[in-house]
């Protein structure tokens, strides 16, 4: 991914994390409002979050309620997206799956972001042996093609939601370590870092109050892109049988199960969850594009 030239002004003002962060996010918020495509992506995500939170209100059926007599029925008024091979309502399952998929995406990326950024920032600031060791560790993780590592660790940990989150976080964390380390390395040479240091702030304060908030927006682009990869990786793991355990609804698993019914003409089983994934990833990508614009308006798409 492109790392932007640091456009940050040498701002040594408020030392309050939240306010600083908001200061950095004010402009992105403006851009999101202004660009219709980005706004679209953003709105879709907001909508998805609402769906996820209000799933019990939106779903028309219990997503786990099995009803053999109603198995494999095409979309109708009773079952908007049809029923699956167990007679479960596909629409309700997709709604509930939104919850799980967003949860997987947010927690895994959040975990990777938090661990990766903190470690990367510390390593970048203090340098020395620990930095060296950490970077070698990152090298080792990045020596594996991500999906191979994901497959190996998922098989080792066993199927299940929590394990998928760990696995996806593991393959994404090194990106944040490297990004944060690079940002901190360049930021700590700047005058305001020097100033913060001489004013008696401890190194940790300098890192987390003065330096890191300036780097967050750059990392946010990465987060938006990685959210979509998290969902795709989870889906890929489902395909090879290492995904979320049944009967829990999850889009990747639903597509994978539904594909077994593709040739027998039960198209609704894979089409609707597929659509859900495409829309979600599209939204994350449009948002990522928009965020990228924020930091380099010349490249606006």
């Amino acid at each position: 991914m492109t790392t932007m030239d640091d456009a940050a002004p040498a701002d040594t003002g408020r030392s309050w994390w939240g306010a600083r962060l908001w200061g950095r996010l004010e402009y992105p918020a403006y851009i999101i409002r202004r660009n219709p495509v980005t706004l679209f992506g953003f709105s879709v995500i907001v909508l998805l979050v609402i769906i996820a939170l209000a799933a019990p209100l939106i779903a028309t059926h219990d997503p786990l309620a099995v009803s053999p007599a109603n198995a494999l029925e095409p979309p109708s008024r009773q079952a908007l997206f049809g029923t699956d091979q167990y007679g479960r309502d596909v629409f309700s399952r997709i709604i509930y799956a939104t919850r799980l998929d967003l949860f997987i995406a947010l927690t895994s990326v959040g975990l990777a972001f938090a661990v990766g950024t903190v470690l990367g920032a510390l390593a970048g600031y203090f340098a020395g042996l620990a930095d060296n060791l950490l970077m070698r560790l990152v090298d080792v993780i990045m020596a594996f093609p991500p999906f191979i590592l994901a497959m190996g660790t998922a098989a080792a940990l066993g199927a299940g939601t929590a394990n998928i989150i760990y696995v996806v976080a593991l393959i994404q964390a090194p990106i944040y370590v490297r990004l944060a380390r690079g940002e901190i390395l360049s930021a700590k040479e700047r005058p305001y870092a020097e100033a913060a240091h001489t004013m008696g702030n401890s190194p940790l304060q300098v890192i987390f109050i003065h330096l890191l908030p300036n780097c967050v927006p750059v990392l946010l682009v990465q987060v938006a892109v990685n959210l979509s990869w998290a969902i795709l990786n989870a889906a890929g793991l489902s395909f090879i049988g290492l995904g979320v355990r049944p009967p829990t609804p999850e889009w990747g698993g639903m597509i994978n199960e539904g594909m077994a019914f593709m040739l027998s003409g039960h198209w609704w089983l894979f089409f609707f969850p597929g659509l859900a994934i495409v829309i979600t990833i599209l939204a994350f990508n449009l948002l990522a594009d928009g965020l990228r614009d924020v930091f380099d308006p010349r490249l606006r798409w």
Binding site: L64, A65, V66, P68, Q85, Y86, A159, G241, P246, P247, A260
Partner: peptide, 16 residues
């Protein structure tokens, strides 16, 4: 077992 769709279906029905 993994890779046995018929056992998986049976399991889901039994669970219900």
């Amino acid at each position: 077992r993994e890779g046995r769709p018929e056992e998986e279906m049976t399991a889901v029905f039994l669970q219900a």
